[in-house]
Computed example of a mutant assay.
Amino acid sequence: MPKDGVRENLGIRAYQLLKNDIIKGTFAPGEKLRMHALKAYYDLGISPLREALSQLVAEHLVVAISQRGYRVAPMSLAELHDIYDARAQLEAMLLGLAIERGDDAWEADVVAKAHHLNIVSASNTPEGLLAIWDERHSTFHTTLVSGCNSSHLLQVRAGLFDKVQRYRHLWLKETVFSEQALEQKRQEHSALVDVTLERRHEDAMAMMHDHLMTPVPIITEAMHQQGLA
């Protein structure tokens, strides 16, 4: 029998692997998650997989079906619009607070993270480029709002970011693999940095809101094309 520490590590590993595959679309919305297939796919036992599935049910990425196991949670246009609107409203507010409260060190960090994002170069594989750009992009946005100096608000933000991940992945594939779309994002990020460093509170908030809502039409089209809407 595995020791408690080993069992806990296996549960965390199962959760991380399964969550990542649901976000990436390896398991489609509505797809049944059969325990024997998951055991073979991940080379993990039933206990850590059950722990992972229970946690993903709590995060609304998996649906428990009475006496019939689990399915990947469905996706919908209504949820897409609701989550993105909530996230854009919150992010704009947090940026406004960051502009009011952020110090010189925060400004320097914003500039550094923006530069780090801009110099992303081609990776060996498209998926590698996607992962690198997404990590740096997320870090840039987190740095922008970190100046708000509110751990509770940032925790709420992290929860919303988790909920939006499946939808974001559809947008990422359309954006990172398109040089034209990437250039548009570079310009938007540069403009965001400028108004933030100039402490133009209202302009920065409006720009952030619009920036975070731009993926919605792209995701909507992708969902229609993939039969998810």
Rank of each mutant, 00 (worst) to 15 (best):
S150M: 03
M223F: 13
M1A: 08
R166T: 11
S76R: 06
Y15R: 12
A158K: 03
L17A: 08
A86L: 05
W171V: 11
P74H: 09
H152G: 04
A108E: 12
E174I: 01
L90D: 11
Q67G: 04
A40V: 11
A191D: 06
T139M: 15
E107S: 09
R136G: 05
Y84K: 02
Q155H: 09
S150I: 00
E127V: 10
P215N: 12
V193H: 10
K32G: 02
H36M: 07
A78W: 07
G227D: 05
L17R: 09
I65S: 09
T214A: 03
Y70L: 04
E79C: 06
M223E: 03
K185Q: 10
W171K: 11
E221S: 15
R136N: 09
L38A: 00
M93G: 08
V195E: 08
A158S: 14
L170Q: 02
G11D: 06
I46E: 12
H81L: 06
Q55Y: 04
T220G: 04
D4Y: 14
D210T: 11
V195K: 10
L80R: 01
A58C: 06
V176N: 12
V176S: 09
G25C: 00
S190R: 15
H141P: 00
G102T: 03
R157L: 12
E183I: 01
E183T: 08
L17M: 13
G45T: 04
E107I: 01
L153V: 03
E8D: 09
A78E: 13
R186S: 11
A28Y: 01
E59L: 06
R7I: 02
L94Q: 05
K113E: 12
H201P: 02
P217M: 13
